[in-house]
């Protein structure tokens, strides 16, 4: 820690502000570069080993193990896509995840019930 500053002139305050802003910019720019680096490493690993992402996710998350159990069932019927979710799974039939999220949000809003208290089994587009 630097020694406490007792007095600062207006000129010094400008200099201090400039230096501090530069440090903040530099620190956040470094974090930005670290994120790019991290993403590049993950992309490279995925490219080398296509199963890397699934392995990593399974390693970090217990939930991934549950998803793996469900995966064979999903493969049987490839037109069904299983949405990622914090609680259980939902079958999306001819709807994108974005559309499904929108529908779930609207239903929760109309029912005045928190989304995490609702259970959706499937969302199907009716032509």
């Amino acid at each position: 820690m630097l020694s406490a500053v007792e007095k600062v002139t207006i000129g010094e305050s400008f200099a201090l502000a400039g230096v501090s802003m530069s440090i903040i910019m530099a620190v956040l720019a470094c974090i930005m570069l670290l994120i790019y680096l991290m993403s590049a490493v993950f992309k490279f690993m995925e490219k080398r080993n296509p199963e890397f992402k699934a392995k990593m996710d399974a390693f970090f998350s217990k939930k991934s193990e549950k998803t793996e159990e469900i995966a064979p069932a999903a493969e049987e019927n490839k037109e069904y896509v299983t949405a990622r979710g914090s609680c259980g799974n939902i079958v999306l039939n001819n709807v994108t995840e974005r559309e499904a999220a929108m529908i779930m949000a609207i239903v929760a809003d109309k029912m005045q019930t928190p989304l995490n208290e609702l259970r959706f089994k499937s969302i199907k587009k009716i032509d």
Binding site: S13, A17, S20, M21, M25, L28, A29, I31, M32
Partner: peptide
Amino acid sequence: MIANPKSLLLGAAAQLGIFTAFILAIV
């Protein structure tokens, strides 16, 4: 933020008011 790391620079630029107010408070 991880998806768009450039947004970190916006978060840094938005600290401008802290240091401008610091100068004004000294004044």
